[in-house]
Design a protein around this nucleic acid. Structure first.
Length: 458
DNA sequence: TTTTGAGTTGTTCGA
DNA sequence: GTCGAACAACTCAAA
């Protein structure tokens, strides 16, 4: 294909059967990412061509307009996306157009790693061992010298309407993110220049800005690949610039992403159906007001509310806090994990078709290799343990900032004088707990008991 | 085929 | 305050 003119095509497809529409935060990201990509391509004498509509039709149009003889793309792994892509491949080949797909998103295709008995892995640790043992990143391809191609009609990025308007809720996003390939590379470089060595400990501290890599949205939108990450980490270890202790913990998190993709590939309904079918008997509660309080960060538990507000304001939430808020929704509040998954899908800039449902199911207990049923995160002790100095809660729940550390994660335990001195009026300036911890915990454990009873009866 | 060991991230209780 | 044990039982992966 070298030397032939290229049409760089992005199709925004909300028309093909079954595709899950992008959430609002994803659209915000795509708006910037596409602009960055367009600029990068323009720098190589090319043009990013944007179309909207069903992918098959858009491709047909562009082929007719340009006489293209070949179409190349990177694979996706969600059920509807795979169906659309398979149909396109078949149609193109029948028309005599070369059609080829590649692995651009994963270390290893989800059908490669198999257990001794030939199935896919359902437990992370053996999956990770197998991946580590066999994986070596392919050598990096050289940057293309030119992406020149024919002048084709294209929509402008702004015409997609991806940036929020009326109101623009994204002001808090701008300070945090630089979508695009250059932003992704800078993130990785910064992370490998020090923070990765402390990753093992600091990744659990949400108050630490550099405790985690912040690469998730870049990985989500293909601005950097896990193979690039792996290569860079290994190179830094070999050069003696970083130790392999923290680095391997970091790579194991990259492997969790792979594990999730393997689960999604082998369970295309992962975002809708319980992976563990016993959970169909779970007595979830339908309480719109309670769900809304969780979404708005008004549960009365500071670490939960801080997380939900960080999400709303920046499009991202620290991983430790994701587990806490997800446990709180599915266990204390007993609201279906799908409601949480939907909310994250809409509000996260890294909303991922594999990681999001897999992680929600993991926390709820219905997922692969899931948390055991008795593991109900205590939002008070989690806060005290991982946000001991209160930096995280004070940042995202400023109305509590003047409380002393001792009661910051459980304001209702503070005496009237302490509350008054801090300007906190429970039920007025900050909510009372939506449910008492011990009550919620007991209720969740009892519900899990009923699952067990139903299973043994079946 | 059978057996064996192990399983991301926690909490609570009692010594 | 700190420590170890109990919390269940099951499924998975590999020997």
């Amino acid at each position: 294909m070298s030397g032939r003119p290229i049409v760089c095509l992005f199709i925004h497809d909300e028309a093909s059967e079954g595709l899950r529409p992008h959430g609002g935060a994803s659209k915000w990201w795509l708006d910037k990412s596409l602009k960055a990509l367009a600029a990068d391509i323009a720098g190589l004498s090319g043009q990013l061509t944007l179309r909207t509509g069903a992918a098959a039709e858009c491709l047909g149009d562009v082929i007719a307009e340009t006489g293209a003889g070949a179409v190349y793309w990177n694979r996706r792994y969600d059920g509807p996306g795979r169906a659309v892509d398979a149909a396109i491949k078949e149609t193109l080949k029948a028309r005599g157009v070369e059609a080829e797909s590649f692995n651009g998103r994963l270390l290893v295709e989800p059908w490669v790693l198999k257990t001794g008995s030939g199935g896919y892995y359902k437990v992370f640790t053996p999956f990770w061992k197998a991946l580590r043992a066999m994986y070596a990143p392919p050598p990096a391809l050289p940057r293309p010298k030119s992406l020149a191609g024919p002048d084709v009609f294209s929509l402008g990025v702004d015409e997609l309407g991806f940036h929020p308007h009326g109101p623009d809720w994204s002001t808090g996003f701008n300070a945090m993110w630089t979508p695009g390939e250059a932003g992704a590379a800078a993130r990785l470089a910064d992370f490998l220049d020090g923070p990765v060595d402390e990753y093992g400990e600091c990744r659990n501290l949400p108050g630490r800005e550099d405790g985690t890599s912040g690469l998730s949205p870049h990985l989500r939108f293909g601005e950097i690949s896990p193979a690039q990450v792996w290569r860079a980490v290994m190179a830094a270890i070999e050069a003696g610039r970083i130790r392999d202790e923290g680095a391997m913990v970091f790579l194991s998190e990259i492997a969790w992403r792979e594990f999730s993709y393997s689960l999604l590939f082998h369970n295309p309904d992962l975002a809708e159906e319980n992976y563990n079918k016993d959970f169909r008997h779970m007595p979830w509660r339908e309480e719109a007001a309670v769900l809304s309080a969780w979404q708005r960060g008004m549960t009365g538990y500071p670490i939960v509310d801080a997380g939900m507000r960080q999400l709303w304001q920046t499009g991202w939430m620290h991983n430790r806090v994701r587990m806490i808020v997800a446990s709180f929704l599915t266990k204390h509040l007993m609201i279906h994990w799908r409601k949480g998954e939907d909310w994250f899908w809409d509000t996260l800039v890294d909303a991922d078709p594999a990681s999001n449902p897999a992680s929600w199911q993991w926390t709820a207990g219905s997922g692969a290799d899931a948390a055991p049923y008795f593991r109900v995160f205590n939002p008070i002790t989690q806060g005290q343990k991982f946000d001991a100095d209160g930096a995280y809660v004070r940042r995202w729940c400023p109305e509590l900032a003047a409380l002393p550390d001792k009661v910051l994660h459980a304001p209702w335990q503070a005496g009237d004088g302490v509350l008054k001195a801090a300007g906190v009026w429970l039920g007025k300036t900050y909510p009372k707990p939506i449910i008492e911890h011990e009550t919620g915990r007991k209720r969740a454990l009892e519900a899990y008991e009923t699952l067990k009873a139903k299973r043994s009866a079946a």
